[in-house]
Design a protein around this nucleic acid. Sequence first.
DNA 1: CATCGGAATTGGATCGTTCAAGACGGCGAG
DNA 2: CTCGCCGTCTTGAACGATCCAATTCCGATG
Lengths: 330, 330
Amino acid sequence: MPEKVTIATVAQHAQVSRQTVSNVLNAPHIVREETRRRVQEAIAALGYRANQAARQMRTGRSKLIAVRIEPTRDGINGSVLDRFLHGLTETAEAAGYRTMLYTAADTAREIATYDDLLGSYDLDGFVLTGTDHGDPRTAWLAGRGVPFVTFGRPWDDLDAHCWVDVDGAAGTAEATRHLLAAGHRRIAFIGWPAGSGVGDDRCSGWRETLRAAGVDPTGLHREATDGIAEGERHARDLLAAAPAPTALVCASDSLALGALQAVREVEPAVPVIGFDDTPVAAAVGLTSISQPLGEAAARCVDLLTAVLDGTRGAPAPVLLQPALVRRQTA
Amino acid sequence: MPEKVTIATVAQHAQVSRQTVSNVLNAPHIVREETRRRVQEAIAALGYRANQAARQMRTGRSKLIAVRIEPTRDGINGSVLDRFLHGLTETAEAAGYRTMLYTAADTAREIATYDDLLGSYDLDGFVLTGTDHGDPRTAWLAGRGVPFVTFGRPWDDLDAHCWVDVDGAAGTAEATRHLLAAGHRRIAFIGWPAGSGVGDDRCSGWRETLRAAGVDPTGLHREATDGIAEGERHARDLLAAAPAPTALVCASDSLALGALQAVREVEPAVPVIGFDDTPVAAAVGLTSISQPLGEAAARCVDLLTAVLDGTRGAPAPVLLQPALVRRQTA
DNA sequence: CATCGGAATTGGATCGTTCAAGACGGCGAG
DNA sequence: CTCGCCGTCTTGAACGATCCAATTCCGATG
């Protein structure tokens, strides 16, 4: 059992004081070349690692960021969070931060958890996923002066705080243009009920692109709660209409999957495009819009560390472009 | 901006000493009823939370457990980890522990990460997912005396360490019995190359059940590397054989999905059963074997905290039963 | 009334690190 | 020659909790 290696052990081994070792770690430029080398050799030889708890107690910085892991809802969209988390953890590690998970049943308890995490572990910052209009969480965090970044725009005021997002409108626009280029005119959209930032954004890309092409979107829009069954129901409904749409764009892969089932039974030639490029889409050959999740996660960490290290001023938000992944269904 | 609340603040507010406050938190029974109540009121009034860094420095316990987040391989099985992580975090929180994530490109670097995490953050324990024969990680951890639990059996020596696992053989056995009950005899199995603990386990459940029913499994077994394409290829191969199998059991949903495509083109009536009950299976109506992931995660935390709190001796391993989820394909 | 014993409470030391302030030697300017 | 300064390094104190040993308090007992 090797003795515990502290900064004092290293200092003794390198014939310098504790503080000099600390300086080599935190402010190398103020230590003479030769001394620095000797200390670094001692660190390597002893396998010394700074004790974060002690460091944190003195500096108040924990080098820890937290992110919520949500219960997988319908499962289909679950792997989105999965990929995001992996990217986040990887980039954070490269920047010297570790990632802590937490769960929360609802928003009120999520805020209580912030309080707990900040009090108990002195977390340096938070990454929030999925913001909505008037999100109380961002208000709470901002009010406390806690650094955070959201994956998802603050839909009310784009300058309210740091954020990274994927341009959903650009995604559905690309999908719609793709279908227009294939000769379709009556392109329908199955989205979510109006009011959610993400849903309205995705809908607008479709609507504006149709309008720009001189097509009136009236009657081609359906609002569905997410899920396969809902997607199927609304697709059937659309296909049964008088002048039926000849193509479908959906706000999620779940909806698209349901729509696909309806299409295959009723009108197999009608193309369907989903959103999120989930494994399910890949498995069934569903054309879908892919979000650059690894990139998004990396930019979240970039922004957060920029705020934490305080070198630069408030960093600019990041809006990433999704990409259409063409498969069999369109 | 509220002042920082420490144990001293609470002590002052409750008119007692620091140590008494500490005792209320860590050994309530040695504090007089009335004093305890007063201290607890002060804690609530001030919103005091014990600083984990300070506690850790003195006690050496961080109340932190770590788990690796792997890059999603083919995406289909990704959500398995997702659900496991959520369960883990939730149960850990209830037990007063927090979950930290880490990534690692390979086993050697994973071990280096253990060293780093232990040195820097004094992690209390690890949860490993997916063990294999002669896993160097468990040997390293055991050698250092670091508490850990694996989700997955130590395939070489079942008493080597604490573990939780799902009985894969029981799962494939149930699937096979289900098909036998439906009148099938020539039931094939598409599994992984021999040598992996999980793969061999799942294969054995099918083989033994067939044998018990008086069916010779020879020629009904294919070894495939995981993936949709491989599943399709082997299924085609099987269906083209002289006495073709009338039903298929697969070691994963990926393989089953490929097999399903082959079946639908060649012999639509042949049932297919997958493994893991991923969202993809649910979406396409694939009958599959479901692992109780939330339960598994909870038991992992139970075992780990039992070891950490040291109240009981080495806790017994846990083997959970999976369940067949019947859908359209079988 | 003095003493005793055990429970309840207190003050000091400690964990490993960084901050603040100071020591030391050499060097250029006044 | 002295002073101040700079670069380099060292020492003491502090962060907030727990452990340990010492002390107070209290009723019971000799």
